[in-house]
């Protein structure tokens, strides 16, 4: 079965989501809550982890946008399938 380029890009985006899901449900890291020194002197690992996670989420979204979020050509967004006048009235 042939998989299109768009299909591959979508699968990579879903793979990124899966990695982020695993990083959120990273129970094996919980033991570090009591071992890792506080970030900036006051943030324990359980809290600091999600500050890092937020940065990673931004990077992950930037990657998803680059890979799999094409901008549509304006001509394709012209109203279709319904009477333009009807749309204007709405």
């Amino acid at each position: 079965m042939k998989i299109s380029k768009a299909g591959i890009r979508l699968k990579v985006a879903l793979l990124i989501a899966l990695v982020m899901f695993l990083l959120h449900n990273s129970f094996w890291l919980w033991k570090w809550d009591a071992r890792v020194p506080y970030l900036c002197g006051f943030m324990p690992f359980s809290f600091a982890y999600y500050i890092g996670y937020a940065f990673l989420a931004t990077l992950a979204m930037a990657l998803v946008i680059t890979l799999s979020w094409p901008d549509p050509p304006p001509s394709l967004l012209e109203p279709a399938d319904r009477d333009t006048e009807e749309l204007k009235k709405r």
């Binding site: 982020m20 359980s46 999600y50 996670y53």
Partner: peptide, 21 residues
């Protein structure tokens, strides 16, 4: 405690914008 942060909003930090995509 601090774990409330990840529990409530952790996954949402990524998946909410991801579902916008």
């Amino acid at each position: 405690g601090f774990g409330a942060y990840g529990y409530v909003i952790g996954w949402s930090i990524f998946v909410t914008p991801f579902t916008y995509y």
